[in-house]
């Protein structure tokens, strides 16, 4: 099938079997390798991207489901060579070790902050419950999201 959808606000048109995964379209066809495959079964969250602002698993999303959708990947958050407030908070708060969960984690946090600019710790932890990190114990990740929320609120004033 030919599917047209938006990736990071740019319209893409791809010829693909309908059962091909969004994960493979992004990684293999569009070379957006910031989205990672950690389990391929919707358990680890490393492949999280945003679909119309909501976090989804790219590994559980098929081409047939994509027509007209808006997909945001990690590459869509900032210009090349730059980091947005959230990405920067992850980097500076030591929320990144091996980094394999990072991009999905950031996008889950992004989805939270789009809806809830001032989340408390419980909200943050629940919003990240679909993203497994094996390196950290999540402490710095929660800190980074708090910091980003604060900086985003300050920037909005």
């Amino acid at each position: 099938m030919i599917v047209s959808f938006y990736v990071n606000d740019r319209l893409v048109q791809l010829e693909t079997p309908p059962e091909r995964r969004l994960l493979d379209l992004l990684r293999e066809d569009l070379h957006l390798t910031g989205v990672k495959e950690g389990c391929g079964e919707g358990e680890c969250g490393a492949c999280t991207v945003l679909l119309n602002g909501e976090p989804i698993h790219a590994c559980l999303t098929l081409a047939i489901q994509l027509e007209g959708c808006h997909i945001t990947t990690i590459e869509g958050l900032s210009a090349p060579g730059e980091l947005d407030i959230l990405q920067n908070a992850f980097a500076e708060e030591l929320a990144i070790q091996c980094g394999f969960c990072t991009t999905g984690m950031i996008l889950s946090a992004k989805a939270l902050l789009l809806k809830q600019p001032d989340p408390d710790e419980t909200m943050i932890r629940e919003a990240l419950s679909g993203n497994i990190c094996r390196c950290s114990g999540y402490v710095q990740i929660v800190k980074a999201v708090k910091r980003a929320a604060r900086e985003l609120r300050e920037a909005a004033v």
Binding site: I74, S78, Q87, F100
Partner: peptide, 16 residues
């Protein structure tokens, strides 16, 4: 200090 490739990992640019 953050890990040396923190920015690359945060941006999705780091290649595994």
């Amino acid at each position: 200090r953050p890990i040396h490739d923190a920015a690359g990992k945060a941006s999705g640019n780091t290649k595994y």
